[in-house]
Design a protein around this nucleic acid. Structure first.
Lengths: 177, 177
DNA sequence: CGATCTTGGTTCAAGTTTGAAGCAAACCTA
DNA sequence: TAGGTTTGCTTCAAACTTGAACCAAGATCG
């Protein structure tokens, strides 16, 4: 089949998206680097930990929610650990896993820098969107994300019982299901 | 003023956006790395050059349209030059500038890999959006991009005659305005 | 003109990301 | 329960990005 090129509307949308995401990520990164001395991803690590039960999460689970590779997360946590914002801890129920734990110092940094971060997100993004657009954006993005995480539709290689990642118990003993 | 935190809707939108953009960029990068042996940005360099008059563009202009730093572009072009897809050329009307020129080899790679790239963009993004959503996405993104490029509103530091970047003549002699 | 400022580009070191290995602890399964 | 597979995580080198210098060539202005 001959390629289905992008329509003019799609082209415009695609280019606008590329530009916007580039500029947005730049703005966020720059601000966080200034105020918190770390890139956005590292901040997100802290933020996610702060919301987790007991402020700790398994590396794999954290990587999963952040949509990044384990390797990348290892690097981030190592750096954050060196700076004292995160501590590693062994999982008691699975000796392979290790947990990343947000330290008090890490929590403090998070609390100190969160307002500035939110301000930036507002100024760059939400202050420029109508409430309807916020809804549209969410709708669009959840759809895209869902699509990109699905087990590779298309081929006939669908016979594998692609069990959903089973243990969402981040550091807790496995549920009694 | 106490921080205006994100509303639940905004939170959801923000997280969905982060996830989607991460996954999307990953998918695109992976595909291009496979088929073209280069990351998305490098491909974009080739693509932009291919559309430019005479297949050449000043470094600064290219960086400007790609929304990246000149430094980053220098790296990309250096690598692409080493691989023979791009050639540097001196600008005749401004001895400071240099032009990036798409070579025939570069054009060939572009033509060979464009279909696969477009397929990926379709599969990851547009096939999952309604026509209305495509419009919404463009609207949202152009707004964001415009906002993030404006000359830093807010302060009183607005007296500078922020002349818009004046010479869009990429390698051509300056217009007779 | 000559001093100064701005613009266009590169360089360099430090930081981050990628992807392929590698290692060890669970998990099968015969 | 031994052997093979999967899962969780790290390591390592190569690739890429960042941001602060740096240099040279235009533009400005007295």
């Amino acid at each position: 089949m001959t390629t289905r090129w992008l329509t003019p509307e799609e082209q415009r949308a695609w280019r606008a998206y590329i530009a916007a995401s580039q500029l947005l990520e730049d703005a966020i990164d720059r601000q966080l680097q200034q105020e918190a001395g770390m890139p956005h991803l590292f901040y997100s690590v802290l933020a996610n930990l702060s919301e987790a039960p007991d402020r700790r999460l398994r590396m794999t689970d954290l990587a999963e929610t952040l949509k990044i590779t384990r390797s990348r997360l290892t690097y981030a946590v190592t750096r954050l650990e060196r700076d004292g914002m995160v501590r590693r801890e062994d999982c008691r129920w699975d000796r392979r896993s290790s947990l990343a734990v947000l330290t008090d110092a890490g929590m403090a940094v998070l609390e100190r820098t969160a307002p500035g971060h939110v301000d930036t997100v507002r100024a760059s993004l939400f202050d420029r969107l109508t409430p309807e657009q916020v809804g549209q954006l969410e709708e669009i993005c959840t759809g895209i994300a869902r699509g990109l995480q699905e087990p590779e539709a298309g081929g006939a290689a669908e016979d594998v019982p692609w069990r959903r990642r089973s243990s969402p118990c981040s550091g807790q003993p496995p549920a009694q299901s």
